[in-house]
């Protein structure tokens, strides 16, 4: 599967023509990760957005921190993201530091990495791409929030409806 094919299966690029997705794919670099590899780390700066092509990553945040207690830091897993899902888009928009750590949980996970500056330059050159991409980022963040809300509700013993 080509990078363009992988990106076409992501909602982030839904509504764009294959040619437009091809322009974005030309900016992307594919990297392959193994289980346990940290892709982005909470608190660090970063200017890339990632799309999972194959495999799975896990989004985690620290679960409290007790100074001077030995051992690995405890973390809370927020969600796992599989093929077609994106992460890193918050830093793309707000230029803040990474809000969570993302680590690979399957060997051979393939990620399409797109640098912020190049992507925003393409959006400036082709505002139709820019509009669709920003709309899709908003929709994806909304979907993630709905997932989180459903999770909280189910953990508290309610129904999904």
């Amino acid at each position: 599967m080509t990078t363009t094919d992988k990106l076409c299966r992501s909602e982030l690029f839904s509504g764009l023509s294959p040619e437009q997705v091809g322009k974005i794919a030309a900016l992307a670099e594919e990297v392959v990760c193994q289980s346990g590899d940290v892709v982005v780390r909470e608190g660090e700066t970063g200017d890339e957005v990632y799309v999972v092509g194959e495999g799975m990553v896990e989004v985690v945040v620290p679960k409290g921190s007790i100074p001077d207690v030995p051992g690995p830091p405890r973390v809370k897993s927020l969600v796992e993201l599989g093929p077609g899902q994106s992460f890193g888009e918050m830093a793309l928009l707000d230029r803040g530091v990474r809000s969570a750590t993302v680590r690979c949980v399957e060997d051979g996970t393939t990620l399409c990495v797109i640098r912020r500056q190049a992507l925003l330059a393409l959006c400036d050159d082709d505002p139709q791409i820019g509009y669709v991409l920003m709309r899709n980022i908003a929709l994806d963040l909304s979907f993630k929030l709905r997932h989180r809300n459903l999770r909280v509700r189910l953990e508290e013993g309610g129904g999904a409806g």
Binding site: E11, V59, V79, E80, G82, P83, G84, Q85, H147, R151
Partner: peptide, 8 residues
């Protein structure tokens, strides 16, 4: 018991 997942 598991955080759940979002998958296409």
């Amino acid at each position: 018991s598991h955080p759940g997942a979002i998958i296409n």
